[in-house]
Nucleic acid binder design. Structure first.
Lengths: 299, 299
DNA sequence: GCCTTCTGTATTGCATAGTGATACGGCTGC
DNA sequence: GCAGCCGTATCACTATGCAATACAGAAGGC
């Protein structure tokens, strides 16, 4: 975990963060800031960024691709330029090149651009090569057979956790099926599970830097309260969240550790409060999931 | 569908295709060439590639990222350089930059590089913004409730179809859960379903350009026979494959059409020949899936 | 033990490759 | 009809990315 702190990059400085404008179908089923979590702060400072090894045109290209992070429909060239913080000419060249390679496509109606299917090839590479995903997948499938609820694997990425493997239950919303979706560490069951295995100062640092806007009226946003929850999690060996990200959702998170005992991800079981009392949910699902999390961990 | 044929790019000319060396766990459960399908031929010719709008450094960067397509473990800089067809210095600069942005990470043991988690952000963008994925997800979930087998949505990409939504059954292998996985059009149920809605010369062209190596002893590889299967598919309105990609697998594929009637993807139902006779499989699952495919189509 | 061969990282002068202002024709909507 | 977008095309300038080369540390052979 400490290995990569040298190469850091705060991409948020260069990618503008416009307010998300809710207007599409799933916005009514999910609080509109569900996609809010941002990629991990990597804080490569100006010094590294101006180093002779840093390829600025590539940086711009990735900013162009990232313009879609805040989009909810196809983007025009000017919109891409604006979102990416580059001028129209640069956007034009980058889009042209990315399009030639399949990383950007045209929208179905011919107006505007959308992410290209070739991106999914890299998704596969990531999932295939990640040792955690490799190890977890069969175990998660076993677990899913026993507990008939949603089961996920999420990966720790600083202020957020990113869903990498998703096994569905019958009740689903759009976002709860998508790989790549992420939620903040500070208020998710996976986040608490991971934070509970991190040193205190690291936890403080993460909470301090987190954008702690609530997802539901019940989202815990005050640091003392979060710390309390994390302490509970630490004592129990798992995290239990009610109504934190989604109203009516109950979720349990279990830390997954690497060989040196550092948390690298979490597995989750999530159900509906309409079907479960918290007690039943815990009694029924926790033991199996705990066992699964231990089996995946290498510590 | 015909809109984007101007921007073409044959990335295979620049990315070497080494033989895949099987040695990891899932290679024993799957034929080793299951990942063989290559990203769609986009054949941007030298003319476009040397145009003043084409950013060569970006091309090299993406080739570097694509080096992982043929990897089954972390890659060293030299390996990346070799796979990507660039010199070590270029690989160094690209890796440095991509790493700073989170698109490449170090392997857990500190030796070599692996794809970075930030790639999953773009996965999410792709899935969120693709109209087909949006429309299909809830319908696929409905369908999954009825037929208790594996249900997928795949997207047409020239010589291959790419899995974008995957709803599991109890019996699973590693690859059958991963988004981004792709299989050739010429021998998959989704591929046949799509080809059955394409004009004849287009089908011929695709078959001619396909690398038609068999996946199993039963894979249909001869063009006349494939054409026959496609004709059947066309007559039935769905494709039925036995042992084509995976031994013991039976799969049905259903074309999904866009507003102008062109096929843009397919949905699948897949089961095990150990549990189903083909007749039962057809009788039990086809009607529901056909209806689902129609509901997703916009034609 | 030493020697070879890998790793990943760092430096530097040169010219090419990317830059960005500016222009154009084709839509859409007022 | 004009205004304002869209995506595309051109071109002179110089900043930017290039590739050869050098380096320290780890791994592996013998």
């Amino acid at each position: 975990m400490h290995s990569d702190t040298a190469a850091l990059y705060d991409y948020r400085k260069v990618v503008n963060r416009p307010l998300s404008t809710a207007k599409h179908e799933w916005d009514v089923t999910l609080p509109r800031n569900t996609t809010r979590a941002e990629p991990g702060l990597r804080g490569l400072t100006e010094s590294d960024r101006s180093g002779p090894l840093f390829v600025r045109s590539l940086e711009k290209a990735m900013q162009v691709l990232s313009a879609f992070h805040h989009a909810d429909s196809p983007l025009s060239l000017s919109e891409i330029a604006e979102q990416a913080g580059v001028d129209r000419s640069t956007a034009q060249r980058m889009v042209h090149t990315l399009r030639a390679m399949g990383y950007i496509g045209r929208a179905a109606d011919g107006h505007g651009f959308v992410p290209g299917i070739r991106l999914l090839d890299h998704t596969l590479d990531y999932l295939r090569l990640d040792p955690l995903v490799r190890r977890a997948t069969p175990i998660l499938q076993e677990l899913r057979k026993e507990v008939r609820e949603r089961v996920d694997l999420s990966l720790f990425d600083d202020l957020r956790v990113v869903y990498a493997v998703r096994l569905q239950s019958k009740r689903q919303t759009f976002y709860t099926t998508l790989v790549g979706h992420s939620v903040p560490s500070f208020c998710s069951s996976g986040g608490w599970a991971i934070l509970s295995r991190l040193p205190n100062d690291r936890v403080r640092d993460i909470l301090d830097r987190s954008d702690r806007r609530p997802f539901t009226p019940h989202t815990v946003t005050e640091i003392p309260e979060i710390l309390e929850k994390i302490a509970e999690t630490s004592a129990n060996g798992y995290a239990l969240t009610l109504n934190q990200i989604l109203l009516g959702e109950i979720a349990a998170g279990f830390p997954v550790l690497d060989a040196s005992g550092d948390p690298v991800g979490a597995i989750h079981v999530a159900g509906s409060l309409a079907e479960w009392t918290p007690e039943d949910f815990v009694n029924r699902n926790i033991p199996l999931a705990l066992e699964a999390a231990r089996a995946i961990s290498q510590y």
